[in-house]
Design a protein around this nucleic acid. Structure first.
Length: 486
RNA sequence: CGGGGCGUGGCGCAACGGUAGCGCACGUGCUUUGGGAGUACGAGGUUGCGGGUUCGAAUCCCGCCGCCCCGACCA
């Protein structure tokens, strides 16, 4: 028994955050390790959470005019090497196929770490005129990056993601597209996953290999570490030039198109866990929760059992097809032969937003007891009011989790004006640190080596503010966002 | 890849040269059911892999593999 009087089978978040995270992932049956180091088996419950965010992001991607396509898993070595900065950035992480069909291969095949190089090569035949542009494509696939250190969902050797690849006639169009991608990620994070994010630009050191610049969104986890939630890259004409993509523009000039790419991965399942979870396990926002309401029958005698079962069947029928913000209401009745207490813990560990207890006393009064996961707030509610009330409660709960995450971020965001203050904040629980920086990559590296923190983004909404660089005291125009990060 | 931990039924652990055991979980029956039920019986193991030492190895030695934590690479 824990101090709170509630049983728990996982390590406490406040005492051992990494241990807590592993326990949640394993005991809530989200994922398992595979026989291959660093790879992950995503179990049904974990996959359902991924599918929910995937489907929501897919709706955004389609709504903004992109089409889904598929490109193959293998990339010839010669192609990957065309963009110099790109290959340099990815080479150490690439897994190669060196033998196939019983023979050693002359041209090794990379298992895609990302698809820019392959796509650029292929679409050069598709793009002949400005009329062929923009080309707006998206892939849902898996990629492999041989990471040295892996963690379930957060960093695995193989992961699932979406990678959008677009080509444009003008730089301005590509600039707008980078913003379109980033906005889709913000919307999914904030409105679907209830994870508040900060939009900004990555520093030169942190940008995507081969990009002109990279934008990303940054979120704060409950252990005070930051996590990047999606990146959108301006590729400029880099990949187009390397692949020799040219089109004839309105002015009868041959030009290279401008490219963008942007990606969102299964790590966001991990972000959802670490943004909302608590000592009892997962806490899921209703929009992503595979079960939004779980009904737990309670009874002693056979007569009670029948009466309760009858009432629950009527509730189920009434709730069938009730609309919520994220589609038809997802209700599950837990009819397993377990004690109620066991079921309460089972579903709390899995983060189900609401539990509805229906027992003999409730049936007699035409009501149920509705319990909110995040704070176990209980209220009695008339059974015939459920169809009208549940969608409202779910919407309120979604908003509550977002506000709670916002409050947490506010309470864990700090300003530092000198290195001593900066390190004090890191020693005292971490969080987001807004601090002045001169813009020099050398200072950025030095602070990373000294403190472990990195510049997450240069926030778009950071106001102009004259200051002095944390490291070397040179003038700084505004604060940038530092944190220790995943 | 460096530092530190650790690999024994599904999970958590014990046994640390001498017959592999306990708790939870699992199966069946009965009694239970508003915060992880009780009871009886039962099933489940070539102790991560490969060598070696020994009459005898989960235990000692060597090598490998994997997992976790911290760091460097990174979504």
């Amino acid at each position: 028994m824990s101090k709170s009087g509630f049983v728990t089978s996982i390590r406490r978040q406040s005492e051992d955050f990494p241990g807590w995270y592993n326990d949640v992932v394993r005991k809530a049956e989200l994922a398992d390790h595979s026989p291959v180091r660093g790879c992950m088996i995503i179990r049904p419950y974990g996959y359902a959470i991924w599918e929910s965010m995937r489907d929501e992001l897919d709706r955004h991607i389609r709504r903004t005019g992109h089409q889904n396509v598929y490109f193959p898993l293998f990339v010839p070595r010669s192609l990957l090497e065309k963009e110099a900065e790109h290959v340099e950035g990815f080479d150490p992480q690439v897994a190669w196929v060196t033998r196939a069909g019983g023979k050693d291969l002359d041209d090794w095949l990379a298992i895609r770490p990302t698809s820019e190089a392959l796509i650029a090569e292929v679409v050069k035949d598709w793009i002949q005129s400005y009329r062929d542009l923009p080309l707006l494509m998206n892939l849902w696939n898996n990629v492999v990056r041989w990471e040295l250190r892996t963690r379930l969902f957060l960093r695995t050797a193989e992961f699932l993601w979406q990678e959008a690849h677009t080509f444009h006639a003008t730089e301005q169009e590509a600039t707008d597209e980078v913003a379109t991608g980033l906005e889709a990620y913000r919307a999914v994070c904030e409105e679907w996953l209830a994870i508040p994010v900060i939009k900004g630009r990555k520093t030169e050191n942190e940008k995507f290999p081969g990009a002109v610049y990279s934008h990303s969104i940054e979120a704060l986890m409950r252990d005070g570490k930051a996590l990047q939630g999606g990146t959108s890259h301006m590729l400029g004409q880099n990949f187009a030039r390397a692949a020799g993509i040219e089109f004839l523009d309105r002015d009868n000039q041959r030009k290279n198109p401008y490219g963008t790419s942007w990606g969102f991965t299964t790590r966001m399942v991990g972000a959802t866990i670490m943004t909302h979870g608590d000592d009892s396990g997962l806490v899921l926002p209703p929009n992503v929760a595979p079960h939004q309401v779980v009904i737990v029958p309670i009874f002693r005698s056979d007569d009670d059992r029948l009466a309760v079962a009858g009432a629950i069947e009527r509730v189920e029928a009434e709730l069938a097809g009730v609309a919520t913000m994220s589609g038809p209401l997802r209700v599950t009745v837990d009819r397993r032969e377990e004690t109620p207490g066991s079921k309460f813990n089972h579903w709390e560990l899995r983060g189900v937003p609401f539990r509805l207890e229906i027992g003999p006393r409730d049936v007699a009064a035409g009501q149920g007891v509705l319990v909110r996961r995040v704070d176990r707030l209980k209220e009695t509610i008339a059974l015939d009011a459920l169809a009208a009330e549940l969608p409202r409660r779910l919407a309120g709960y979604q908003a509550l989790l977002f506000q709670r995450a916002l409050d947490f971020r506010a309470a864990n965001s700090h300003e530092a004006d000198d290195l001593a203050g900066f390190e004090r904040i890191l020693d005292d629980g971490g969080g987001f640190i807004h601090a002045p920086w001169c813009g020099d990559g050398a200072c950025e590296k030095r602070i990373n080596e000294q403190t472990g923190a990195t510049i997450r983004v240069i926030p778009f909404d950071a106001p102009d503010e004259a200051g002095r660089c944390l490291v070397d005291g040179r003038p700084s125009e505004r604060r940038v966002l530092f944190a220790r990060a995943y």
